[in-house]
Amino acid sequence: MSKTLKIILGVLVTALVTIFGIIMFGLNLMDEEDRYGDLVYFNQKVEDGDIIFRCKHSGELGQTTEFNEYGLIEKSLNKVYVWDNQNTIKQELYDWAGKGNGERVKVFRIKKSDFDINQAKLKNGTYNYLMNSNKMEFVTENY
């Protein structure tokens, strides 16, 4: 095989591998967006141990949404999972959020080391009071 033919074949193989790689990368991005919808960017913003709240019920338009369930976030292999508040069931973020009201979720990070989310109790049927406290900082939301 001549040197010129080897160079041409090398360039063609490199070009084909590059094009295939770009196509696969694009398909992977489309899969993530199709799977997670509006939650696709949560992976970039949340960290292990963040607290995610979801609402099971919501008031009329203009009323405050009542966040009455929470979970703890775990990131693993570029995916976001949520442990329920008893740490018994681990679900993907999309599945956990989808069981709420219209996938309405808010994520907070604990600021104070003396704060224990497991000691939090519902007040008037919600955890909204925790979101306004100085013990947690807002990370992101979806709605």
Rank of each mutant, 00 (worst) to 15 (best):
N43F: 01
G59M: 08
K75S: 12
V80R: 12
C55W: 00
D38H: 02
Q119T: 12
I117F: 07
R109E: 05
S113V: 07
I117N: 08
K90W: 09
T64M: 11
I89F: 02
F53D: 00
L77I: 08
D84W: 07
Y127S: 06
K123T: 12
G59Q: 04
T64E: 15
L130P: 08
K123P: 03
N124F: 04
K56L: 09
F67I: 09
L39Y: 00
K56Q: 04
K111C: 08
G62I: 06
K112I: 02
M131A: 06
K75Y: 10
Y41E: 01
N128W: 00
S58W: 00
F108A: 05
R104T: 12
N134Y: 02
L122A: 10
E103K: 14
Y70M: 12
E60T: 06
E74M: 12
A120L: 09
A120Y: 03
T65W: 05
V105G: 04
Y127N: 02
K106M: 13
D95V: 11
F42E: 02
Y36L: 07
N68T: 11
G98P: 01
S113T: 12
Y129R: 10
R35A: 01
Q44I: 02
I117V: 13
I89N: 15
K79D: 12
Y41V: 03
H57L: 05
W83F: 15
Q44M: 04
Y36E: 01
E69T: 14
S133C: 08
M131H: 03
S76A: 14
N68Y: 10
R54S: 04
L39I: 01
D50G: 04
Q119G: 00
Y129F: 11
G71D: 10
D50T: 01
V82C: 12
N118F: 13
L77W: 05
S133T: 10
E103P: 00
H57F: 06
N101I: 03
G102D: 10
R54V: 07
L93I: 12
L93P: 06
G59T: 08
D114H: 13
E47A: 03
Y36H: 00
F108C: 05
L39T: 00
G71Q: 13
G62C: 07
V40S: 00
E60V: 04
S133M: 09
D95M: 09
N124S: 11
Y129Q: 07
K45E: 06
K121R: 13
I117M: 14
